[in-house]
Amino acid sequence: MEASATTVSGGRSLIERSPLSRLPDQVLQWTLTALAAAILILIAYFFIRLIGQSSTAISHFGWGFVFGNDWNPSHLIFRGLPLLVGTVVTSAIALLIGVPVAIGTALFLIEICPRRFRTPMAILVDLLAAVPSVVYGLWGVFVLAPKLLPVEKWFASTFSFIPWIGGGTVTLYNYFIAGLILAIMILPIVSAIAREVISTVPSEHKEAALALGATRWEMIRMAVLPYSRSGITGGAMLGLGRAIGETIAVVLVIGNADVIGKHLFNQGYSLAAVIANEFGEAANTTLYKSALFEAGLVLFILTLIVNIIARWFVSRGTRTRAAGAVMAGVAVDEV
């Protein structure tokens, strides 16, 4: 036999593809692709089912569900402005308090903190993200709210001339406490993204500023902040998304009152809180339950929009795949 390297005795070429040789590869590729596609289908399916469950309330109240101011379950009236206001107010407080602190922390850790303290300090800040929301609620109910009540009372009476602050009773649970807890809860994610973004500022930019005789702070202002603005904005938006959707910590400390609070230190409600708080009562009333599903739908759409904007900023600001991991709440240095 004139045995050539590339043919076997049967004459079939050794490099010829046998019918089954590529099967495992194709099976695997299709399985993985199908799994990935299943995620999209699942999300779409959930979304449609949620709309379906909300449809009773949607047809009953229309836009009034979002903008009407009358949440009255005993009369089966569900106009949820008090919920939306609560969500907006508490999230705004969370941003106002949480974002500056988070950015300050990130700047300090990356630009000022001695290198050997950086990682341990960052780990400590990240630990805030590890605390479950129900534990924040626990702490808020039994420690933060009672301890801050006298301070809030003093503040409300001293600054009562400022609108939305004074001029009414200060309740134990209120918008401010809820917003404060949210601020603490969003701090680690905003800070993690800010750190990620700030640490990617090219050192030439920074050195150029320093070479011009800038002080550290001037360098931060001239080189670091402008470069990382987009990413930090994205981080703040992500924090906003988290704040809007947070349920358990808020339901415990917002007071769950179904009228709009008169001021910052008054009790209120939120979209997420109402679902957790009233789901049990709604069990057998179709319209009531549908209204709670619609609250969930509004929440879903709201967070979706915020997250889409956030993602746009983050991916513009970091230009790295790491953005995704950061968004998933996994700081890159952990991986």
């Binding site: 050539s4 390297a5 590339t6 043919t7 070429s13 050794l14 490099i15 010829e16 593809r17 046998s18 040789s21 590529r22």
Partner: peptide, 20 residues
């Protein structure tokens, strides 16, 4: 062509090519 067999021909198994 490896010993007369064109590795770019249709129906050729890439993994076998790389093994050779």
């Amino acid at each position: 062509a490896l010993d007369g067999m064109n590795v770019y021909e249709d129906g050729v198994d890439v993994t076998s090519v790389r093994r050779l």
